[in-house]
């Protein structure tokens, strides 16, 4: 477990000296700030929207769809390309510790980025009377963290498969997009569409946690998908040894 922590903290610090991370952070805040401003602007102009934390979180989730593959793409692919994976795999570290450490580092970094977005609900809370719905805010943020952990785990898994970070980026993005839109198939009545609907990453989020409903199946869905991706990731690292 200590190895996980050592790898995670190296990775976490690494983000703050790499340009990718700053680009991701800057674009998130830029887009989010713009959308926030427009929302507030129209609210003040007297349109009917009733602002709550969701005017921040809705767009944030969409941005994260693109941001997480960018954050995870180099995690293992780069190590593999640079030959440093050989260093980690010949150090007394288990394969899963490498994967979980990488994931945890990325997770920590994204949490820092997400933490700063609290500033928008805070402003909103000051501007509205009697303030925004705190329950929804907490539930939606909890959902966001769960969603984030799953998306990052998938990103790490894909990064473990490739030697080229760009390839890892696009494949991870494609997989996340499929999981994103697969929910739209779930509107039918058949078993297939039900399965598709329950697989959907964002439907789980938008339909429940986003609305302030914390349900166990949703939490389990995110947690188990995260674990599954990390287990597969470890398997891939191990299978690399056998080639």
């Amino acid at each position: 477990m200590r190895n996980v922590w050592i790898i995670a903290s190296r990775e976490f610090r690494q983000y703050f000296i790499s340009p990718v991370a700053y680009a991701v952070a800057a674009s998130i805040y830029l887009i989010l700030g713009g959308i926030f401003f427009i929302n507030i602007y129209f609210a003040i102009r007297g349109s009917q929207i009733d602002p709550d934390g969701r005017i921040v979180l809705g767009p944030l989730v969409t941005i994260l769809l693109f941001a997480t593959p960018a954050v995870t793409m180099r995690l293992l692919a780069e190590e593999h390309r640079m030959g440093t994976l050989e260093l980690l795999l010949t150090a007394p570290v288990r394969d899963w510790e490498v994967i979980v450490g990488k994931w945890l580092g990325a997770f920590g970094f994204m949490l820092v980025i997400v933490a700063f977005t609290w500033v928008y609900p805070y402003i909103l809370n000051r501007m509205t009377d009697p303030g925004i719905d705190q329950g929804i805010l907490v539930s939606a943020y909890l959902g966001l963290v769960l969603l984030l952990s799953t998306m990052l785990a998938i990103g790490v898994l894909i990064s473990a498969m490739f030697k080229n970070p760009m390839a890892a980026f696009f494949v991870a993005l494609a997989i996340l997009l499929v999981l994103w839109i697969v929910g739209s198939l779930g509107s039918g009545a058949g078993v297939g569409s039900q399965i598709a609907g329950s697989l959907s990453l964002v439907d789980r989020y938008y339909n429940n946690l986003y609305r302030g409903i914390i349900s166990l199946p949703d939490v389990l869905y995110f947690v188990s998908l995260t674990i599954l991706a990390l287990v597969f990731g470890s398997q891939i690292v191990e299978s690399r040894r056998w080639r």
């Binding site: 190895n3 050592i6 790898i7 190296r10 690494q14 000296i17 790499s18 640079m82 030959g83 440093t84 994976l85 050989e86 260093l87 980690l88 010949t90 150090a91 007394p92 570290v93």
Partner: peptide, 27 residues
């Protein structure tokens, strides 16, 4: 085992001491 692979595995964005601290704590 101490191992020096053919392509020296280094993290270019780390300092020498940081790198050794990382490897040392893993070991």
């Amino acid at each position: 085992v101490g191992y020096l692979p053919e392509t020296v595995p280094l993290y270019p964005e780390m300092s020498v001491v940081e790198y050794l601290e990382f490897m040392g704590s893993l070991r």
